[in-house]
Design a protein around this nucleic acid. Structure first.
Lengths: 198, 198
DNA sequence: TAGTTTCGCTACTACAAGTATCGATACCGA
DNA sequence: TCGGTATCGATACTTGTAGTAGCGAAACTA
């Protein structure tokens, strides 16, 4: 998760002086998801998340510059890499759609995603973090695996993630499997070899 | 816009006693959109909206119970009824998609929509307002015009609105016409007569 | 032991949603 | 003309949250 990316020293593995950071990142991520799940995004304050993690609020702010950055890192940890398995583009896309739908359906994940997404609407700095750290890795992996240009992969992500988040936001419940299947069918048909322009 | 829906008196048009409300709703709506457009959703505080409208903040709260309710009413006013014109379902759906895409692209409208949508994620009361007052009228009109069952129209709305809002939220810019056309093509193909289950 | 960094803790600032209260104003009916 | 009623603007207030500042203590290295 990039504990020590700086590496100003040329000598390898020279542990920096001072008290080392305690390994509470995983605990904080778990506390974030469970707090968001129980109280919703708006009431999942940094104070409450810190209390749930058994950590001082200042410790959170020493590691993440803002609540939004914490949520983005938490989502990165929860998502992990895309499982890009399957023979052919259709299988790849279908499995990616089912994967992200399942992830968004996990307790707390969808709420946190939708919450940070909406915060980003009026916060360009957070939008940059969200786009660069969360969307870009998956976009690049999909471009590579599918052999599609950037604009078409962005369209793919808009349709799939946008639909799933809209359903979650409007109903409070993740999209049912039957509708996820319909979404996959629709998208795959559109992206079949020889489909339209964008 | 539902100024006086209560109507406890049986006698028609018995104007209630007291000083009548000044007709500033339209001014407040315009001030809301322009403030959201200039400052973004989060910094478009009720104080600022009231100042832009030349109205006291308390006047806003006398008419709308919360900022979210104000935004929803403002969006209702900005959207108006769906123009359901066109021969056949394909024309109807295509024109509806272009219409909502254009509305979301209007200055302030998309930002306000995305902002109130994300607030609703962690606010069940606001979600109810959003669903009942904003989504349901359009859903019912589409069910009637397209002859589709509720779950398929809800899926249609999730895909179209979700995609447009995700693009706006991630990039800060409304979706370009070429991508709106691709969205319409994909959705129409999925909803062609004799298409899949959901 | 000296130097460095993180820790928990408390206190603080800045700001926004929403409420309470006041005198003033506009309209109705008698 | 006058009382009743409800709105208006203005000000002040409460509550809650993001984020910051500063402290002494703890944990590591050299």
């Amino acid at each position: 998760m990039g504990y020590r990316v700086g590496m100003t020293r040329a000598t390898t593995s020279a542990r920096p002086p001072g008290r080392p950071r305690s390994g509470v990142n995983a605990v904080v991520f778990a506390a974030t998801l469970s707090t968001v799940h129980e109280l919703g995004y708006a009431r999942a304050t940094v104070d409450r998340i810190a209390a749930a993690a058994g950590v001082a609020k200042t410790t959170i702010y020493r590691r993440w510059p803002s609540k939004g950055a914490l949520i983005v890192d938490c989502l990165l940890d929860a998502f992990g890499p895309v499982p890009l398995e399957g023979a052919g583009r259709a299988d790849l896309m279908a499995s990616a759609i089912r994967w992200i739908a399942a992830k968004i359906g996990e307790p707390g994940v969808g709420d946190a995603f939708a919450g940070v997404f909406s915060d980003a609407v009026s916060d360009p700095a957070l939008r940059e973090v969200l786009s660069a750290r969360l969307q870009d890795p998956y976009r690049l992996a999909l471009q590579e695996a599918l052999g599609e240009p950037e604009n078409r992969v962005l369209f793919f992500i808009d349709v799939v993630v946008g639909t799933l988040l809209h359903r979650l936001g409007m109903t409070g419940e993740p999209m049912a499997d039957a509708d996820v299947a319909a979404l996959a069918e629709m998208v795959l048909s559109h992206f079949a070899d020889g489909a339209g322009s964008s």
